[in-house]
Each structure stands twice: as structure tokens, then as C-alpha cells.
Design a protein around this nucleic acid. Structure first.
Lengths: 345, 345
DNA sequence: TTGAAAGCGTTACCAG
DNA sequence: CTGGTAACGCTTTCAA
């Protein structure tokens, strides 16, 4: 039992498909009688216009693409949910694309999304080779960046001030009198991690302190596992730090696990600061002090910007850069640098 | 700069669009020379066939819909990732639909997916009103259920044996000599929760014990928060249980928080068993004993079944019911019933 | 081995 | 107010 088409409706109503199309789209002037009748028949035949056919004539597909590293990472899942909700309020549906931060996957998905004529794309994944994006820009398909920067390319962007976030982490730790701090970042291609590192380092240096190279570690793609290994290296080193700033909650949890494994007490002997304030941060023990991003807000702003672009609002076009402020959320994974050494002089 | 079409290629190559179409689809017999030339031109013009146009002629849209309660729930996010990965191996992309277990949203999304002519739908969300699905069944659009049952409707289904899962939880607790147990389930419309409850209760009763009604609590849609409230009720009651089986990890975490709030030690004074074995279970303190589902396997089996259906494999058609086995994962949130009362006589 | 033409379900323009 | 018809980009059948 295939679906009814506009022809079926027209035939049944004894009118032309043009008329039916007009009532569907609320255009033209159709007598109320006809209009009611046509509605009735559409109802009766359970008619639903084909988005495919309508898209072929140049109208929207009402589909948006979302590129993120990994939907199973709670931060991105929460973001996806916000994007989905906001999109669906305007009738858009969401195609999820997990890229694992791999450029090949990014370009594969980008191509796919084009072929499927999505109306717009939200990119929340690191892209190393910016040439991947330039072809898209010429194709007039709107893109907005979320949670990631694309330096060198002018694109509407919604981010938190990652630099400020890194700084807040450092200042919190500095305020707790930590002097020997380390950082574990995501791979360098992730712009937000680079900025967090910069902010963290600047805040430290502005106190006349150093952030030596051996105190800066990077993970690979497996955030949790690599976070743990890097933390193990740091903690087992000759000069272990008293605090570690982790560029996201997953890494922070890996670090927590490393400390547990080494019998290092958190926060007494080691302070840990995470980033993202995902649900994960609230369930660990101790609960994670972390830097929160307004995920929901970011998602909805990104979608709204995109939709404004779709509607041809060229105000939005030229670099709507929305920069939100990350907030320090203090829980129980950080403490004074001397909490664990009260016996000392 | 709009996209090149098949006409552009044909003109450039001095052939008809039919010929171009044939080389794209590897059909018909085209001289090698022409074929090479056409490939070259497609490359040169950066041509990508429009999925929309091709779908209109009756071919696939290469898009699948996934209905789940909430993409920001780690269990479903992990499942979505598995589905996405498996689908993308066969060139399918994934539209995410978070339903919050609401029938209106389910039917809204179902209708949307039809209008967009997705090739198939995977449903992993509770549906109360089975009549929502029957129209779909007549429309010959393949559906497979994942992690949820649709009693009364014959649909290929991939689930774990939830009854056995509930049983395993009870047996574990029983083995730990718990005698006073409670359960916190999801809303009744969630079939998997009903089964888990059944298995849990049966195992208890087969030991000649009871599961009184006041020891059975249900959450609303906010799993974490409601889980905590229900646990608080249980724990603050006149006859608090020594163990609580939570129908998913989120509820278990709520329960953990409730215990913490009341100063009840886990697992010494209260044992908690979760379900799903999401990443959350491994990061709490104490880490959750939980029943694990083979998420990844379920995702890939669901997609494979769906694709087989798409390809018209009627073997798959008639109720491919795949029932996988859930496993007990013992961590640190469960202990002997008497662990917390050693001082007693 | 190639091409002409019909058809997929809509929309939009123009005539009446 | 209503209908005829071209167009959207592609696939497929049938002739040549």
C-alpha cells in the first residue's frame, strides 16, 4: 500500500494538482468550499506531501547535519540533544555524523550531506585541513561552527571563550596555592584545547610561574584511556604536579582513575579540574570541579543562526561570532595545595 | 556557485544524460574511452549526483531514522553510535529522533521520517499506543525494534533478555543474603522495565520471599532526579530495604546520591545494582554493579536486519527476533547484606 | 554502444 | 479563483 500522491488528491477532489498544491502551501486564492473539501480528502487518504519531491523543486529538505567527534561522548550527546530540540521546533531534523576528529570522515560526511541536499550544517569537530571546507563555502550551503573554531575561515561561530576557561581553571588552582601544575589536552587539531592550554599557561605565567613542557600532555582519540595513561606518566614522574587541569571531563575521569590506581588521594594529594560539566562530572567521587559550557544555549544559538542564514538573513551571514562565557563549577576534586601535607612544617 | 548536474556532465562530454547515468551506476555497456572521459569530467566539475533526484525515481535515500527516548542518555548515545557506525559502512546516514518516551513525539517523528522517505526506521523507544505503528506497517517501510518490545505487533526485534537480566540482579543480591529488596523502574510503558521487574520479582519469589508493592517504585521521565526521589522515599521509609535494583544506571546514580545524602554507606549499608553498564557505571564511587547489554552488537544487528529487509530478504522479514544475553558486571556497589551490621549479634 | 523520452511528486508561472 | 504545463535531476526502457 503505497502513499497517496498529490494526483490522487486532485483526482478525488475533481481539481487539478495545481489547486491542491496551492491549498497545501496556503497560496493563491481558493474558494473556501474547495479548500475544505481538499483538506477533507487529504485527511481521508492520509496524504503527506513528499519532502523529496518538494525539495527537488528547490525547496528545503528540512534536514540539518551535525558533525561532532563522537555522539557517545556525553558532552556532544548533550549538545546534539539541544540542537535536535531547537531544530525540531522549526521542523528540521538532524543527521548525526561522528567524525572521530578524522579529516577523512569529515570530508566523507560533508560530501554526503551535500549530496543529500541538507539545508545547513553545524560543525562541532576539529578540522585540520581547512581546504576541506572551502569547496563547501562556494556551494552556498550554510555552515555554522559550534564549540570549535576554524581559524582562517570566516564562518558564523558559537563558542565559549576557551581561553578564559583555561585561565579560570588556572586561577582557581593558583588560588588554592598550587605551584606545580600540569595539563592534559586533546589532540592539537582541536582548537578549543589549544585555547584552553593558552589560557591556562598565560594565567600561570602571569604569576611568575612556569608551565614546563613535560607538564603538558596530549591524548589521542581515546580520551578516557589516554587520559589515564598521560596522568599515570605525570604522576609517576620524578616531579609529580599537585594539580592537573584536564581539557575535558573524560580526561579528568581518566586522571581520577590513574590517581586511584596509584593510591593518590584526590583532592588531598592531587587536585583535578575538568572541562564541560557533563553529567559525568557530577557522578564521580569525588565529584569533579570543572569548567561548564552552556551546552543548551550553544546548541540553540547555533541552530537559530543557521536558520537565519537559510532564510537569507545576511546580517547573520558575516561572522556572527557568539562567544559565551564558561563558568567554574567547584565540586570536590580540588583543594588547597597543602591539604595533603598538613604534617609538613 | 551551484552544483553541477548530470546535464552539465553530458554536455561537456558530448553525450546524453542517459549515458552519464549509466556510467554512474555501472550499468549498460559504455565504451571504455567514453567511460574514462566521463569520469574525468565528473572529477573536473566535482560532480556529485543528487540523492534527492535519484530517490524521486524510486531509489534509496540512504537514510535511516533512529527513535530513542533521549540521545543525551549515555545508553542511547552509545547505541546510536553503534547504529551510526554500522549504517555508515553501508552508506546510510542516521537521523536522530529523541522522543522522551512521548507518544505524540513518536508519531510526529514517524510521520516526518515517512515524508522524508527514509529507507528504514529503528525504534528503541517505548510506544504506548500500538496503533501508532500500524499505519507504518502498511506503508511497507521496514522497521526494526531495538532494546524495546512491541507486544502485539510482529516486528523484527533485537533485545537483551530483560527478564533474565532482572533475574540475574535478584540472584546476585540473594546470593549476598539480602532479604529485603526494592526496585525502581522506568515508567510502565517501557517494556524492558516491565520485564526486568518480572524477572526480579520471580527470582525473589522463587526463594519464598516477597516483593511487596511498597518496594516497587517508578520514575517519571527525569531518570536521575526521579530515581533520587524514589530512593529517598524507600530509604526514609519505616522499613528501608538493604538492596535496591535500579532499572538503569541513571536511576542507580540517583539512588547513590540519595544514599549519600542520607549518610547511608554503599555498599556496606545499602547495595545498589544498575542496568546498562554505560560509562556512567564505571565512574561513580563506588563503581556500580550493573547488568550489561551488548550495545554495540545490538546496534549492528539491528542495522543489518534492517538492511536485509531493504534488500527484500523476506527471511529477515518474519520476526527475526534476536535475543542477546545480559551479563552481570560486579563492581563495588554491592556487598553482603550483613557487611554494614557486623557489630550486631 | 548510445540516445530519446517518459516518469518520479512537487512547485510556480502564466493564462483564462 | 482555477488549471495547464514546464521544470527540478535523475533512472530506466525501448529503439536505433
Amino acid at each position: 500500500m503505497s502513499n497517496a500522491t498529490i494526483y490522487d488528491i486532485a483526482r478525488e477532489a475533481g481539481v487539478s494538482i495545481a489547486t491542491v498544491s496551492q491549498v497545501i502551501n496556503g497560496k493563491g486564492k481558493i474558494s473556501d468550499k474547495r479548500r475544505q473539501e481538499i483538506y477533507r480528502i487529504m485527511e481521508e487518504l492520509n496524504y503527506r506531501p513528499s519532502v523529496i519531491a518538494s525539495a527537488l523543486t528547490g525547496k528545503s529538505t528540512f534536514t540539518l547535519g551535525l558533525l561532532i567527534p563522537d555522539i557517545s561522548n556525553p558532552f556532544f550527546a548533550e549538545m546534539a540533544r539541544a540542537v535536535e530540540d531547537c531544530g525540531s521546533r522549526s521542523k528540521y531534523s538532524l543527521v548525526i555524523c561522528s567524525t572521530d576528529n578524522k579529516d577523512e570522515k569529515v570530508s566523507g560526511y560533508l560530501e554526503l550531506l551535500q549530496q543529500k541536499s541538507v539545508d545547513g550544517i553545524i560543525i562541532g569537530t576539529g578540522v585540520e585541513d581547512r581546504d576541506l571546507l572551502t569547496p563547501l563555502l562556494h556551494k552556498s550551503i550554510p555552515i555554522v561552527m559550534i564549540a570549535r573554531e576554524m581559524p582562517g575561515i570566516q564562518l558564523p561561530t558559537v563558542i565559549v571563550d576557551d581561553y578564559a576557561g583555561g585561565k579560570k581553571a588556572a586561577e582557581h588552582l593558583l588560588g588554592l596555592r598550587h605551584r606545580s601544575m600540569a595539563i592534559i589536552t586533546e589532540p592539537t587539531k582541536v582548537s578549543s584545547s589549544r585555547e584552553r592550554l593558552r589560557g591556562f599557561r598565560d594565567a600561570i605565567m602571569s604569576q611568575g610561574l612556569e608551565l614546563p613542557d613535560e607538564m603538558v600532555k596530549k591524548t589521542g582519540e581515546n580520551l578516557l584511556k589516554d587520559g589515564k595513561s598521560r596522568a599515570l606518566e605525570l604522576l609517576a614522574g620524578s616531579n609529580p604536579p599537585s594539580a592537573i587541569f584536564c581539557c575535558n571531563d573524560l580526561i579528568a575521569i581518566g586522571t581520577l582513575q590513574a590517581a586511584k590506581e596509584l593510591g593518590i588521594r584526590v583532592p588531598e594529594q592531587l587536585s583535578i579540574v575538568g572541562f564541560d560539566n557533563t553529567i559525568l562530572a557530577s557522578v564521580t567521587e569525588p565529584a569533579l570541579t570543572t569548567i561548564s559550557q552552556p551546552t543548551e544555549k550553544m546548541g540553540s544559538i547555533a541552530v537559530e543562526t543557521l536558520i537565519r542564514l537559510l532564510e537569507g538573513d545576511s546580517t547573520a551571514e558575516e561572522q556572527a561570532r557568539t562567544i559565551l562565557t564558561p563558568e567554574l563549577v567547584i565540586r570536590s576534586s580540588t583543594a588547597s595545595a597543602f591539604a595533603g601535607s598538613e604534617a609538613h612544617p
